[in-house]
Design a protein around this nucleic acid. Sequence first.
DNA 1: GCCCAGGGTGTTT
DNA 2: AAACACCATGGG
Length: 258
Amino acid sequence: MNGRISCPGGFSLEKTLLSGQCFRWTLADGALHGVARGTHAQLRQTDGYIEFSGGDEALWRDYLDLDTDYDAIRSEVVSLDPRLEQSAQSCGSVRILRQEPFEALCSFIISQNNNIPRIRLIISRLCELCGEEGIFFPTAQAIAALAEEQLTAIGCGYRAGYLLGAARAVLSGELELEPLYTMPLEQARNTLLGIRGIGPKVADCVLLYGFHRLECFPRDVWIKRALAEGLVSEAVAHSRYAGVAQQFVFEYIRTKQA
DNA sequence: GCCCAGGGTGTTT
DNA sequence: AAACACCATGGG
C-alpha cells in the first residue's frame, strides 16, 4: 500500500532510522528501505510529508512515534539541562521508535562491545538464517531452535550463547515481555538483568527502544564520553524524558566532526 | 598489526 | 566497590 502522512516539523526520518536504535534500514536514492514489524517498505520524507510504499498510515504513525509532541519534550529537557542546547539544536529531530520488544531484546544483546555496521550485518544474517525471506524478525521459537554454532557462524561471537539463552527464556515463559511495558521501572530493569548477557546498558536500551520507556538513559561509551565532555549533565539522566535526551546526544557526538 | 565498538561476566584487589 | 582480564569479530 502506498500513501503519505503529514508529519510534524522538526522531524528527520533519516536521522531517526539511522541513529543506531534500529538496525534494519538503509538509505538508497534518498529513501529509507527497510522492515518493521514484518512489513517491508520504502519511506521518503518530502516537505512536510512521509511517503510510504508498504504498510499503512497507522503502522508508520505508530512506529515513528509521530503522535508524540517532541517540541514539548525538547523544551523540557533543554530547560532541565542547558548543556543539551547543542545536541538538541542539531539532532533534536530524532525520535524514539516503537520497535517490537523481542527484536529490540535480540538486537541489543548482539550490540554489546560491537559496532553499528557489524550489528546490522549480524542481524541481517540472522533474519535470513531464520527464513521468511528475511522479512520477519525471527520469533523466539525460531532462534531457540538454532544451534549455537549457527549463531557463531553468522558473526555473533561469544554473544551466541546469550542470544540463544534469551530466546529460550522467552519461549519457555521464564521471561515475559508484555509486562515490561507497564511494570515499575526498577522491577523491569531487574527482570532483564536476570538474563545472562544483559547488563545495565543493554537493559536500558531494550526498555527504551523496545518498550518506549522514555525515562531510561542507556550509557554506552559515547554517552560516557559526552558526559565527560560536558555535552550533557546528570541532571537530565534521571528525568522522565532522559532517553530522548540521550538519543539527541548520542547522535550528536557520534556524527559531529571533531 | 593496532585500537575500537550502543558491554557483560567472573576474578582479584 | 573498584580494577582487571577475558570474551569474538571485523571496520577503520
